[in-house]
Amino acid sequence: MKKNQEIKKSLAEILELPKDIVLDIPKITMVGNLQLYIENHKGILEYSNTRIRINTKSGVLRVIGKNLLLKSIVVEEMVIVGEIHQVEFTD
């Protein structure tokens, strides 16, 4: 499995393919500290006003902030708004 991943990664680099599609890892976009846009998530693990944990292929993404709100959520993507302080990957 690990080897498979390595091959895919090098293949993506050689062919200059977008890594988020080839490797099925999340693509995260932030607008200032107001909005966080996550594509390719694998569901939420924890949700509160101050902390959101999201499952992704690259590990668990933890968002810490104030007044967090799940603006919208569908299979592929989700939008979080609020005052975002920290975004980090934890294993």
């Binding site: 569901g43 709100l69 799940l70 603006k71 919208s72 959520i73 569908v74 299979v75």
Partner: peptide
Amino acid sequence: IARGIYLWDI
């Protein structure tokens, strides 16, 4: 999400 129900402003 899995069932395709669109939720917003959670």
